[in-house]
Amino acid sequence: MSQNIKKSVADIPEDTIVVEVQGHSNFLVTVGNTGHQFMLELKDNKTITGIKCPGCKKVYVPPRSHCPTCFVKMTEWVKLSGKGTLDTYTVVRYKEQYMPKEPPYAYGVIKLDGADTGIVHMIGGVDLNKIKVGMKMEPVFKEQREGSILDIEYFKPV
């Protein structure tokens, strides 16, 4: 090798460079048998179901396999009317990547009758300025359902 490597580095600038890099991902989410059962009820029967803990008797929506308090397996399914009460909400007016729909839109926590936990979903069929905590709500299902939480298009005031 014959190159002269004693070249000075003094002429090379030092100011900070910021590089833009992109991260790509395409993950798969496995719903699991418990979640699958819930999704099938939404899709086939337009029914929201909860799951009941044999220990503390709490009913969880959406369902999960184990009770977070008792750590026991839950297997008892409870069919719910779908009606509930709006616990809290907000109106989204800003926009960013990967939002479920175009702003402005409202979403909130709806505590379903017969369940002990609230479900997070979008609120529709109402003037965004007229949403009130404590309103009675009911789900509006999509015509074309595929077995997803978005088979419920939104909750609207009764």
Binding site: V29, T30, V31, G32, T34, G35, R64, S65, H66, F71
Partner: peptide
């Protein structure tokens, strides 16, 4: 592959 359970249920 485990399609019968999700990640949290796998931990359980």
């Amino acid at each position: 592959k485990r399609t019968d359970i999700n990640t949290a249920e796998l931990c359980a």
